[in-house]
């Protein structure tokens, strides 16, 4: 069930100048959350940040009653969030959206770019529990933008590309040598910038491999009322907030 929940900022962990993880504590046990689910965080402290901001859940702890988000500062809303103080009240609506499908006993390639890595640790955890093998491929501009490698390694092998070659293979995720062995994978999951997901979706189709993408469409509400976040599918326009954010690329008009 969707809930509006007042939380308190428990911890703010900066990973670099513009990337941080906020951990919120709530007075009750969190609702069940699966990888890909998101929350709408209220940030309306100024007139020019009017709407809530949607973020994929990065982690949830049902014992400590906490929920965490991996956030990259890209605009005024994320900037305001980065300035929250410990103990400050934060209102969220959650859990929203669908989740990645969790397939058993298969080999998966999980690709993240930029803030798109947010739901992928939770996904790796779920896939590992199902007996599936996870290979992560993380891409960024430079080494400084590659985060949480140790945490990813808990659930699978981690491959890296950076555009300047400062870490891992040089280039974009689609340039990595792992693509030479792509036929050994049964499924691709990805979340990141649209052009990256489009490129991956195209390769997946060419190799006839199942591929799920998590879209980051702009939305006003997050729960199916505004109809602003649609993506074109072979079955008409679908809301990324209620029928996504996770879609199988074969259903999208990409």
């Amino acid at each position: 069930m969707k809930k509006i929940q007042d939380c308190k900022l428990k911890n703010m962990r900066y990973l670099n100048d513009d990337t941080y993880i906020i951990e919120l504590s709530m007075p009750v046990m969190p609702e069940k959350i699966e990888s890909g689910n998101f929350a709408e965080i209220r940030v309306d402290k100024t007139a020019d940040v009017f709407l809530r901001r949607p973020f994929s859940v990065y982690d949830v702890n049902y014992k400590d009653n906490t929920i965490s988000f991996f956030i990259k500062t890209i605009g005024k809303g994320t900037q305001l969030l980065s300035q929250l103080q410990e103990g400050e009240n934060v209102n969220i609506i959650y859990p929203l959206g669908n989740s990645f499908s969790k397939i058993e006993n298969t080999k998966t390639l999980v690709i993240g770019g930029g803030s798109g890595i947010a739901p992928l640790i939770l996904l790796g955890k779920e896939l590992k529990e199902k007996g599936s093998k996870v290979v992560y491929l993380l891409g960024a501009r430079t080494e400084n933008d590659i985060h949480l490698v140790e945490e990813f390694e808990t659930y699978g092998e981690v491959l890296i590309t950076t555009e300047d070659g400062s870490l891992g293979e040089k280039g974009r995720v689609t340039d990595h040598s792992i693509w030479n062995k792509i036929s050994s994978f049964d499924k691709i999951y990805t979340c990141g910038p649209d052009p990256m997901m489009h490129a991956i979706g195209k390769i997946a189709k060419e190799h006839n491999i199942e591929c799920e993408v998590s879209l980051e469409n702009t939305m006003a509400c997050g729960f199916g009322a505004c109809l602003c976040c649609v993506t074109a599918t072979h079955n008409g326009n679908k809301c990324a907030c209620t029928e996504g954010p996770v879609f199988n690329v074969k259903d999208l008009k990409w």
Binding site: A47, F50, T218, C226, C228, C229, V230, T231, N237
Partner: peptide
């Protein structure tokens, strides 16, 4: 899409 723009 896009169908929404946040404004002041």
């Amino acid at each position: 899409y896009p169908r929404m723009a946040e404004t002041p």
